[in-house]
């Protein structure tokens, strides 16, 4: 059965040429729902968040990027904005010496440039991971990016800040990230971290996952340990504060 799944994934192009190149997030419950037990390399993932809550989505994307790149190569961050702050990203595991910032022009042409640059970068196997802050993206473009990612075996992230859109897309996973209020989740999921601001808590909804199970997760990033903790969120959306089991990585 596992072999069959692998073959399907290989045919779908998810997870590289042998269908096994995946990066687990270190949370067993969550990884079990992902195809092959982790986020596949050589695939495009989408991370969405509200524009007013840009911090949460950005930080979550940084954690994913650092995981996906895992020292294989530099991380490219393609953006039109000028507000990315490397000292903050370093707190989420993205070291400045691994980061290459591509600042496209702030106009419409910059948007096209970003997608072009992402496609080029995804085809370059020496790259660790690519993130693009993309605006609108049609299905054709998203297919192109997915194909490029499969060719190069490089994971790509599309960070979409703004009103939530549910357009068709060829991305393998789609996450919607919001901030998780309260200390309850934080203290329940992760060991106490001196300051409340040393740990960040998000509700990450896995809205779509090709070959896996969608779900909703409460995640806590522990800055000092550089680890992600998490558990499935309760359906009432009241946070994971009362969840019994914490699952360290």
């Amino acid at each position: 059965m596992a072999e069959l799944r692998e073959r399907v994934r290989r045919i779908e192009g998810v997870g590289g040429a042998d269908g096994r190149a995946v990066v687990p997030l270190g949370i067993p419950d969550l990884d079990a729902g992902l195809p092959g037990g982790g986020l596949p390399l050589g695939a495009v993932h989408e991370v969405a968040g509200a524009a007013l809550d840009a911090g949460s989505a950005t930080a979550f994307a940084a954690v994913l990027l650092a995981r996906l790149a895992a020292g294989r190569g530099p991380v490219l961050w393609l953006t039109r904005a000028r507000d990315l702050y490397a000292p903050g990203l370093a707190g989420y595991g993205l070291r400045p010496q691994d980061l290459v910032l591509v600042q496209a022009r702030p106009d419409r042409a910059g948007e096209t440039d970003i997608l072009w640059a992402m496609e080029e970068a995804l085809r370059c196997p020496q790259v660790g991971a690519v993130l693009a802050e993309a605006g609108k993206l049609d299905l054709t473009m998203s297919r192109r990016l997915q194909l490029a990612a499969e060719t190069g075996g490089v994971p790509g992230l599309l960070l979409q800040l703004g009103p939530q859109r549910l357009e068709a897309s060829a991305a393998v996973t789609r996450w919607h990230v919001t901030a998780l209020p309260g200390d309850g989740a934080r203290s329940a999921l992760a060991p106490a971290a001196g300051s409340a601001f040393a740990a960040a808590a998000w509700r990450a909804e896995l809205q779509r996952c090709r070959g896996g199970r969608p779900g909703c997760w409460d995640l806590v990033w522990h800055g000092h340990g550089g680890r992600l903790y998490g558990a499935a969120s309760t359906p009432d959306g009241q946070g994971a504060g009362d969840l019994g089991h914490a699952a360290p990585a």
């Binding site: 020292g71 290459v100 910032l101 591509v102 496209a104 022009r105 640059a117 080029e120 020496q126 790259v127």
Partner: peptide, 26 residues
């Protein structure tokens, strides 16, 4: 495993279209 400088070929390629000044390292 890899050390420091970013893939130069890719940087050149992006730089040829966007301008090398737009590709930055913090």
């Amino acid at each position: 495993c890899y050390q420091g400088p970013p893939v130069p070929e890719l940087v050149d390629q992006l730089g040829a279209r966007l301008g090398l000044a737009r590709i930055l390292r913090p």
